[in-house]
Design a protein around this nucleic acid. Structure first.
Length: 273
DNA sequence: CCCCAGGTCGTCA
DNA sequence: TGACGACATGGG
């Protein structure tokens, strides 16, 4: 199947560290969604895709990449000065992907004090051991496990997946997962509060969860890359960052932070993204 | 061997 | 409230 898209850059969207299980091969990207494997490629303003599950595939793709959202309009709000203009121009076509809530929670708990390579490794291992196997184009893939599949997982089992000291945080999250039903009905500040009541989820991880799975653009996940960006470009550091970010970007802080993260992280990469 | 990675927690002042 | 070390693990 294929679909025409405006203002969309598949590659930078997928390789930007918001999703952790992307396989790139000869211009095709294989992604593991909640319920299916998709293989997708972009040629100019067209995306071509196939999937292990063709049911409502086009809708699933549009939903996953959030293709109906008016990014141009949001970008205008983020382009507050020359610095941000330059930053957003490096992020043209970049989208926030709509990931599964349960998987996003665990992925970002694992992300703390960790790097993208190791985060991916752990998530792949958890999926391989506890997720549903899917055959697609004669290869085996594993969906991320459902809550019921791993709710009784042990510390040691998690430790064997390479999550390190975050094992106890994941256990604690699983024990409290049912308190998160209907979290999508809460406003952002209450949702943050609810997530952060779980030991092992702090402000940064809670913000990432809300941004990357519930599309709450009014959060402001500030990590080491955003800190570097703010210091190098605005000469701002410490807890002043949060204050300034809220003031400058308000309802669109999340996307602004992601643009900063993306451009800063790729500053020294050549030939990629 | 030291430093760092999409942080958070507990502790001590 | 705020600063600071500990926490697993692998790569540079």
């Amino acid at each position: 199947m294929e679909l025409y898209v405006d203002n969309f850059d598949l590659k930078s969207t997928l390789l930007s560290g918001q999703v952790f299980r992307i396989i790139e091969e000869e211009g095709w990207f294989t992604c593991i969604l909640k319920d299916r494997i998709i293989k997708i490629k972009q040629i100019a303003n067209k995306i071509i895709f196939v999937s292990s599950n063709e049911n409502n595939l086009e809708e699933a793709i549009i939903d996953y990449f959030d293709l109906k959202r008016d990014y141009e309009k949001i970008n205008k709000k983020i382009n507050i000065d020359k610095i941000m203009n330059k930053c957003t121009s490096k992020c043209e076509g970049y989208k926030i992907i709509k990931q599964d809530f349960f998987e996003t929670c665990i992925s970002y708990i694992i992300s703390q004090n960790n790097n993208v390579g190791r985060i991916s490794k752990s998530i792949n291992e958890i999926s391989r051991l506890y997720g549903e196997k899917v055959l697609f184009e004669e290869k085996e893939y594993y969906l991320f496990p459902k809550y019921e599949d791993i709710k009784n997982i042990s510390l040691n089992e998690l430790r064997n997946c390479g999550v390190g000291f975050r094992d106890k945080y994941i256990i604690n999250f699983l024990e409290n997962y049912e308190s998160l039903v209907n979290i999508d009905k809460l406003n952002t500040s209450l949702a943050l509060e609810r997530l952060m009541s779980i030991k092992g989820i702090g402000l940064k991880v809670a913000s990432c969860i809300l941004l990357f799975s519930l599309q709450r653009f009014d959060v402001y996940p500030i990590d080491t890359w955003v800190k570097k960006f703010m210091l190098e470009n605005y000469n701002i550091e410490g807890n002043k960052i949060e204050e300034i970010v809220k003031e400058k970007f308000g309802a669109y802080s999340g996307l602004a932070m992601q643009y900063m993260f993306h451009s800063q992280r790729n500053i020294n990469k050549k030939g990629e993204i």
